[in-house]
Amino acid sequence: MLLAMGTVITEGIVHAGVSDKCSDCHTMHNSQGGQPMNFNSEATPLPLLLRETCLGCHTGVNTGAASGFGAIPKVDSSPAAPTYIWGGGGNTLAGGNFWWVGFDDALGHNVAGVDTPDSRLTTPPGWNQGAAWSGQLKCAGTNGCHGNTGVADQILALESAHHSNVSAPPDLDGTTIGTSYRFLSGALGLEDPDWEYTLSSTDHNQYVGVVSRTESNAASPATISGQCARCHGNYHNSSGSGVNEISVNGDMASPWLRHPTDYAMPLTGEFSGYLNPYNPKVPLGRLTTELGALPDDVSSVNRRVIVCVSCHVAHGSPYKSMLRWNYRAWPGADPTLNNGCQLCHTAKG
């Protein structure tokens, strides 16, 4: 099926600008010559006259191609296993890959269509919303990460988004889904053109964070961590103001009850060893005012914000808790491996 789809789409470019042929993605009647036009041959038409679901287009192996089907970012590798290399060099993108969640629920987000619901968890860890969680996680919509969170259907939640996609400010201003960072509603940032297929200190996404915040402030959808907090809100309340939780200081200050996010990593003390350049193994966020310039410079607290994705990837990884590195194996026989914590906590004393 994917090969067939690739044949069809290589004539056009999807996503940014959605140029060329409408028929690459849409079908008027899901029928031509008596056959369904959906790429998976399903006779049931899809919303927005689409020919495929999210995963239908975003499943495959990333090749770094600049155009055609190969240019579509793939988040669920098929048929082959993705190549994940901590810090870059494989064929996974910034969010990792859903491939691994099929082996272990702790290795990825259990998105509908990718895997069955999590066998252990019935509520997202750190969930602090008033209403109980129900249903399975989706790519987009109310139960998803992308698109309009007020729309239940994941396809409708992304209506028009691909047609208005932008990747950098000032156009990327978070006012619409299309102008939000990676279609995360309200999120700001600067997208790497190849979504970190190639990755280095100067070639990477720029995530938005805030230097510090008060505990009473709600997580901002503008920050990447604030997006995670939609479901994992207690994890954003690093000093403990979650439901039925104690609070040591009542505000964002050490000692942390949880690892802080949306907080500037100091330039001093045990963190002083995280020097320039930016280390793609443990990405740091930055203020919106810092987007674009000096991609490899983390010498200012405004460009060294701890974000959820400093440690985790959004889709999945080979490592438990969707971590970027094999945390559980550290220190092991060689503590220079799997040393993600120590890349920031450079002198623990």
Partner: peptide
Amino acid sequence: LRITVSLLLPVVLFWSGAPGGTPVYAQYT
């Protein structure tokens, strides 16, 4: 299918040098 292909994982996972700071392990380890 994934379980079958996962056997390839050890081949492709390896550590690459840190371009960022100089970690200090010795004290804790």
